[in-house]
Design a protein around this nucleic acid. Structure first.
Lengths: 116, 116
DNA sequence: CAGTATCCCTGTAGATACTG
DNA sequence: CAGTATCTACAGGGATACTG
């Protein structure tokens, strides 16, 4: 029986999981929003200002999407005027290893281009 | 001086690298093609048949893109009729850790949804 | 076999205006 | 403040036909 490398098996069998992950993190603004949130911005317009070129429309939609995916939480505090703040969830923090690997690869990728 | 967690710093500073990586691997067919290649399919139509619903047009375009990104190599062997075969590069294999992390997360993500 | 060219449709995101 | 609604522009991708 031929021994197949683990790499090939992973790629083939688990493609579905890979797609799920890509779906969650590959949006144009997704990671920027998570980044902004993790840097302390919590309010809608605060986040909007922290991310260049994003429109309210997109921010609104992305936040909904992120909330649906349980990556952020939305809290309403009505004390006179409307007060809403967003936070990344503990669950979102499980993405850190994934993101770290991607960043690591991104650095090497860029370096590879320079050296070639 | 306030100690900031490493997680936050990574997210903020290295967003550009993250985007690079996302750009390379987030195409609709990218990972499927790499998967097909890593499973032994090498010829154009072979790959096409191995990936459900992909059109020649898309396969052609994606292969070009992947070649530009040095993730696959294209070899022409003219021995009478046209013979071309594609292979994933050693460079592409450096993506394995990234992909593994993503698959791992994808599994947990799905499980999280089921349990909630 | 190994693609490319063309046409067209649909979805995504921008601009702008408006609401509670 | 915290968004949503509408309209539009543009690009990605599918269908189909064709080429070396």
């Amino acid at each position: 029986m031929k021994k197949v490398s683990r790499q090939q098996i992973d790629l083939q069998v688990d493609l579905k999981y890979l797609e799920d992950t890509l779906f969650v993190i590959s949006g144009k603004w997704t990671m920027k929003i998570i980044s902004a949130l993790s840097c302390g911005n919590k309010r809608f317009r605060e986040i909007g200002k922290a991310i260049p070129d994003i429109t309210f429309r997109m921010l609104s939609k992305e936040l909904q999407q992120l909330e649906a995916n349980k990556l952020i939480s939305r809290t309403v505090t009505t004390e006179g005027r409307m007060l809403i703040h967003y936070e990344i969830t503990e669950y979102a923090k499980t993405l850190i290893p994934v993101i770290s690997e991607m960043i690591k690869w991104g650095k090497d990728h860029r370096r590879a281009y320079r050296s070639v």
